[in-house]
Amino acid sequence: MPGPSADPIELSSAERAVLEGWARRRKTAQALALRSRIVLACADGGTNSGVAAELGITRGTVAKWRERFAVDRLEGLSDEARPGAPRKVTDAQVEAVIARTLEEKPPNGDTHWTSRSMARASGLSQSTVSRMWRAFGLKPHLVETWKLSTDPLFVDNVRDVVGVYLDPPEKAIVLCVDEKSQVQALDRTAPVLPLMPGTPQRMTHDYVRHGTTSLFAALDPTSGSVIAQTFRRHRHQEFLRFLKLIDSSVPKGYDLHLVLDNYATHKTPAVKNWLLRHPRFHLHFTPTSASWMNLVERWFAELTTRKLRRSTHRSVVELEADIRRWINAWNKDPKPFVWAKTADEILETLAAYCQRINDSGQ
C-alpha cells in the first residue's frame, strides 16, 4: 500500500486503457510512456519507493507524477509550458511572409527572394525569415529544371518500352543501347593532390584537352552486364559496326530487343537494310526528350561518377584503355538495373504534373 503521505490512485477502465496504450505503443514519447507506467504501478498499490526501485528512477519522480495525476488526471501527465520570453512573431506575420514568398517577386526586380531582401520587406530579422522558410520547407534560391516530351507517339512508345522491360518476350534478350559521345581525354594543368585526413582530394579547375572518343554501350538490365566499344567518330557506320558486335556477342538462339533513342544515325537506310537482313533484331524507340527511359543512361551515370569525372588522361588511347579496364571490372561483378514503374503509373504521374502546371497560372 502507498505510504501515509502518498495519495492512493484509483483508475477508471477508460483511464487504464489509455495509460496501458501509452505505455506499450512504440511511437509514444519515452517520457510519457514512463509516466504512464508510474501511474499504473501506483494504481496497482505500489509505494513511491517500491515503484522507484522497480522502474529504476528516483522516489521524487514517482511522487511528482503520482501527485500530478491525482490532481489533473491524464492531462497532468503532459509537460507544462516552459518559462521564457513571450513569442514576438505573430501567426499573421508568419502567414504574410510565407504568402509573399510564394506569390510575389522582390520589388527590386530580382527573380527570387533572399532572406535579407525578405527581412527588409517584412521588417523582421534575417534569422527569423530563415527559420520560417526552414519550417515550411521553402528554398527560394533553388530551381529544378524539367522537360516534357512533345512526341505525338509518346503514350504508345512509353507502353512499348515499359512493356519490354516488365514483360520481355520469351527466348529474347533486352538490351538498352546508346552512345556517350564526346568523352574527353582531360589532363589537369598541375598534379592531383591526394586525399588526406581533413582535406579532400584536390585538382586544378583548368585542364588540357587531348581529344575525344565516343562510347557505344548495350546494357542487359537483367544481369547488368555491358557490351561496349569505343569509336573515334559517331556516325551510322560506327553504329552498324556496334550492331555487328552485339550480333556476334549474343548467342544465335535469342531474339534481340534493343531499347534506344531516336537519334538520326539509328534510322539511316543502311541501318534499316542491315536490320532487314537480321530479323532477330527488334528496335523499341523511347519518346523524344525521354532519355530517362533508357536504362543504359543510368549506367553511363555510374561510369561518369566512378571513373571519368575525376580521372586524368594524356591521350585518347589512354582514355579508351582506361574505360575498357573499368568496363571489364564492372562485367566481373555486374549489378542489375530493375525497372519498377508501370506505364500507367508513369502516365498518371505526368498527367498530375501537367495539371499542376495548368493550375499554377504561370
Rank of each mutant, 00 (worst) to 15 (best):
P2N: 01
P4F: 04
A6M: 06
D7Q: 12
S13D: 08
S13R: 07
E15S: 05
E15Y: 03
V18W: 05
L19T: 14
A23K: 03
A23R: 06
A23N: 03
R26S: 09
K27Q: 14
K27P: 08
A29E: 15
R35H: 14
R35C: 09
A43T: 10
A43D: 10
S49R: 13
V51S: 02
V51P: 00
A53L: 09
E54Y: 02
E67C: 08
R68L: 10
V71L: 01
A81E: 13
A81F: 08
P83C: 02
G84V: 04
A85L: 10
P86C: 12
I98P: 01
I98N: 03
L102P: 04
E104A: 07
K105S: 15
N108I: 12
G109D: 07
W113Y: 11
R116C: 00
S117V: 09
M118F: 08
A119N: 12
S122F: 04
G123W: 13
L124K: 07
S127N: 10
F136D: 14
H141C: 03
L142H: 11
T145K: 15
L153C: 02
V158E: 08
D160K: 09
V161G: 07
V161K: 08
Y165T: 08
L166Y: 00
D167G: 05
E170W: 05
C176G: 00
C176E: 00
C176T: 06
L186H: 10
L186I: 10
L193E: 14
M196L: 14
P200Y: 15
P200S: 12
T204D: 15
T204Y: 05
V208R: 13
T212P: 00
A217Q: 03
A218H: 08
S225A: 14
V226C: 02
I227D: 02
R235M: 10
H236K: 04
H236D: 15
Q237S: 13
L240F: 11
L243W: 06
L245D: 09
V250F: 02
G253Q: 12
Y254T: 10
D255C: 09
D255N: 11
L256Q: 07
H257Y: 13
V259M: 00
A264V: 11
T268G: 06
P269A: 08
V271C: 02
K272Q: 06
N273F: 00
W274L: 01
P279L: 03
R280C: 06
F285D: 01
F285W: 04
P287V: 02
P287N: 04
A290E: 00
L295K: 03
R298V: 05
W299E: 03
F300L: 11
T304H: 07
R306G: 12
K307D: 04
R310Q: 12
S311N: 08
T312K: 01
T312P: 01
R314Y: 10
V317A: 03
L319Y: 07
A321S: 13
D322W: 09
K332F: 05
D333Q: 15
P336R: 13
V338M: 12
I346G: 15
L347C: 07
A352M: 06
A352G: 12
Q355N: 11
G361Y: 12
